[in-house]
Amino acid sequence: MLIATRQTEGRVIIDVSGDIDLAHSPVMRKALLGEIKEKKTPKVLLNLRNVRYIDSSGIASLVEGLKASRDIGSRMILYGLSPAVREVMELSRLQRIFEIYDNEEQALAT
C-alpha cells in the first residue's frame, strides 16, 4: 500500500493505493489521524480510487478518523470508491455516515 499527501486550495488530499488490510491499515490510520488530530486540518479528502481491497481494520481506521474529525469540527471526505470498497462499506452499513463522492472534482466542490 502506498500513501501520498498533497495540498490543494487549502485542503489536504491523502492518496491511498493498494490494499488496506491488517498489515497496512495502521499506516493509513497514522496518516489520517496525523492530519486530523495533530495538524487539525479543516478538510481532509481521502482518495480511494486506487484501493483494490479494504478489510474491517481499514474500515475501523476510517471510522476512527471520522470520529476524530467530528470531535474537532473538521470534515473528512471519501471519494473514488471502487465496487469492492463500496461493497464493504455497504456490508458494514457505514456508507450513510461518511461523506462520499464519486470523484475528486465533486469532493473538492463541496
Partner: peptide, 16 residues
C-alpha cells in the same frame, strides 16, 4: 451495526 465505532466488523463480514 447501529453502533458506530471502530472494530468488531470482521465476524459480521464473514457471516454475511
Amino acid at each position: 451495526l447501529q453502533e458506530i465505532r471502530p472494530g468488531g466488523l470482521g465476524l459480521h463480514f464473514i457471516k454475511e
